[in-house]
Amino acid sequence: MIPEKNPFVQADGAKPTCMQMLQLILDDEASEEQRLYFKNHMDSCMPCFKSYSLDSAIKQLLKSRCCNDSVPPGLIEEIKFQINQNTAS
């Protein structure tokens, strides 16, 4: 069932922009009802459709390429050593 009323409309009645709706979808902050509404909206809104593909691709790329730094060797031991020193004294 596609919601008839736009479930993105704020409590103050402000009409959401395409970009604001898209952002909630992209970041998994939307409700089930909002997701349904947006899916339907995207079928007839080319800018949303294009931005959605691009933005999710960038999000995935960020995740796969910018999270690979792991902590330098010895740092955990150093931290534990410092804590032991502090608690012993």
């Binding site: 910018c66 999270c67 730094d69 792991s70 902590v71 330098p72 740092l75 931290i79 804590i83």
Partner: peptide, 27 residues
Amino acid sequence: INSMYNFGYRLTLDQDDAKDLVQDTYL
């Protein structure tokens, strides 16, 4: 700790600063 190091590194863009920041945070 790996996420923390990554965050520290992305903020400072320097490995030594990131290390200091992580150590300081955990202490």
